[in-house]
């Protein structure tokens, strides 16, 4: 285990050390002490290592993550795991706005709540929120899955494309072009897998969730007039 104390090491030094890791590094386990809410911590990782942050993180923690597993002991600021490509980011506390924004892959687990715009413009990531998510979540969400054990705020899935949303609690309102959809066996199967990955398959059953997705009515703007645009 490699321990970096941010009380004595700068964020720049930490990130640089992590970026220098080779894909087959033996330094696979890192612990970061005293994060004190600094921004852009462990952003841009590109190696299969596990990094545990012992406290709160600021904006864009684990931004653009590839391959790495990042565990945030406390809360995470705006844009945690934004544009993640692969790997896992696990927030033990709550997450601020735009959690998992535009992320292409990997798994983002939030044990607490996530604020507004969770999964905005997501492009393939899987997000499991054990608490609730704020308004305008999954705005223009392109693909991937959001699973919410609690409730969802206003305008869920506004202008959504092909992403799948599973909410166990209440949805305050659906955004434009987002509708409730039938839960077919394949959806339940995918959901079950994600609940397992997030370690909550014992606590909740897939039958408690409802599925939401795109009505696909906004996909082609006034299609009758397409040639005249």
């Amino acid at each position: 285990m490699h321990v970096v104390d941010l009380a004595t090491t700068t964020r720049r030094e930490l990130n640089q050390q992590l970026h220098a890791l080779a894909a087959d590094t033996n330094d696979t386990h890192w612990r970061i002490d005293n994060p004190e809410g600094q921004h852009a911590l462990v952003a841009g990782l590109d190696a299969p290592v596990t990094v545990e942050i012992m406290g709160h993180a600021g904006y864009y923690c684990a931004g653009m993550n590839k391959l790495a597993t990042v565990i945030i002991g406390g809360n995470a600021g705006v844009g945690v795991a934004e544009n993640m490509m692969s790997g896992t980011v696990h927030v033990k506390g709550d997450a601020s706005q735009s959690a998992g924004a535009t992320a292409h892959g990997g798994l983002l687990i939030i044990d607490g709540d996530a604020s507004a715009r969770c999964g905005i413009s997501m492009k393939g990531v899987d997000i499991v929120v054990k608490g609730s998510i704020g308004p305008m979540s999954a705005f223009m969400a392109q693909s991937g899955t959001i699973v919410v054990l609690g409730d969802a705020g206003e305008a869920l899935g506004d202008s959504i494309y092909e992403a799948r949303l599973f909410v166990r609690g209440e949805v305050k309102s659906l955004g434009s072009d987002c509708i409730e959809k039938e839960m077919r066996p394949e959806h339940k199967q995918g959901l079950r897998k994600l609940l397992q990955d997030a370690g909550v398959s014992e606590e909740v059953s897939v039958d408690e969730f409802r599925r939401y997705g795109s009505a696909r009515q906004l996909y082609n703007f006034h299609v009758d007039n397409a040639a005249a645009y």
Partner: peptide, 16 residues
């Protein structure tokens, strides 16, 4: 204010 932090992130990811 957010843009400043965003730029910081981009710099961190690309090692300044």
């Amino acid at each position: 204010d957010d843009l400043e932090i965003k730029i910081e992130e981009l710099r961190e990811i690309t090692d300044w």
